[in-house]
């Protein structure tokens, strides 16, 4: 992930003005993966979000999370699942300012997600991987307002994968079989019909001396229904971080 951040930070710029965001979050998550268990799980997740946005409209974001959940409603024992995943997206959005202090954005992202869920109770099929490559539509709105002599900002953004390719084992397929005899049948088209995914964030940027302190609510809805297997991963996270706007100046 660090390597991805370094590479993305030095991508060629059409404009040298950029805004970097880094956030850490903690929140609740609900998980179900019928490949591993028919039960629903709930627990907590830690998440990290990094984004760079150029004046030109180019943006790139990296998100990672780790979760720990327990089965809901069981009494005889408390099965546990651990999960983690990383998504990387890059794209461009068009900015429209109907008035000075209001900005709308509309754009497209291309990216990938890779994650794994590990069920501590299972010995024969202990884990399941989730991955996809997708193109997403992204929308956003930002409202700036003066308060106590500084400019505060309220920001909302959301992205929804529209089309792509996802990975899922077949209904009763083992990873042993996949590793030995290939994964044909494990790649399916990703679209609304096999799982509506949505990532959104509402944030308040509080101005400080030369950066914004960002307080945000982020919701990450990942789900898929393919090969008679269902998976959902609904996370709601409170986040805190900072936003810095700066420009690079070349000195010859």
């Amino acid at each position: 992930m660090c390597l991805a951040l370094c590479v993305l930070s030095v991508l060629p710029l059409r404009s040298q003005v950029r805004e970097n965001t880094f956030q850490l979050g903690f929140g609740g998550i609900r998980v179900q993966d019928t490949y591993l268990s028919p039960l629903k799980y709930s627990g907590w997740q830690l998440s990290m979000f990094w984004m760079t946005e150029r004046e030109s409209g180019f943006l790139c974001q990296v998100q990672g999370q780790f979760s720990k959940t327990n089965a809901v409603g069981t009494v005889m024992s408390k099965p546990r699942m651990l999960g983690g995943g990383v998504s990387v997206d890059a794209g461009w959005h068009y900015k429209w300012h109907p008035v000075d202090n209001l900005r709308f954005t509309l754009g497209a992202l291309g990216g990938l997600y890779a994650g794994v869920l590990y069920n501590e109770n299972n010995t024969n099929n202990p884990a399941n991987a989730h991955a996809n490559i997708r193109f997403s539509a992204t929308v956003g709105a930002r409202y700036s307002f003066p308060l106590w002599g500084r400019t505060w900002r309220v920001d909302y953004k959301a992205d929804v994968p529209v089309i792509g390719v996802l990975f899922s084992p077949e209904y009763g397929q083992s990873y042993y079989e996949m590793s030995e005899y290939g994964m044909s049948g494990c790649f399916k088209p990703l679209w609304f019909g096999n799982g509506l995914n949505l990532r959104q964030q509402l944030s308040l940027d509080i101005p400080f001396k030369n950066f914004y302190l960002r307080v945000a609510y982020a919701s990450d809805i990942r789900q898929q229904s393919v090969n008679d297997l269902k998976w959902h991963d609904w996370g709601h996270t409170g986040m805190i971080g900072f936003v810095r706007r700066f420009s690079l100046v070349k000195i010859r």
């Binding site: 028919p38 409603g73 069981t74 408390k78 099965p79 069920n119 109770n121 010995t123 024969n124």
Partner: peptide
């Protein structure tokens, strides 16, 4: 080749 799953009470 076996698989695992869980019952609503938590038994494997």
């Amino acid at each position: 080749m076996p698989f695992n799953a869980e019952m609503p009470c938590g038994w494997g």
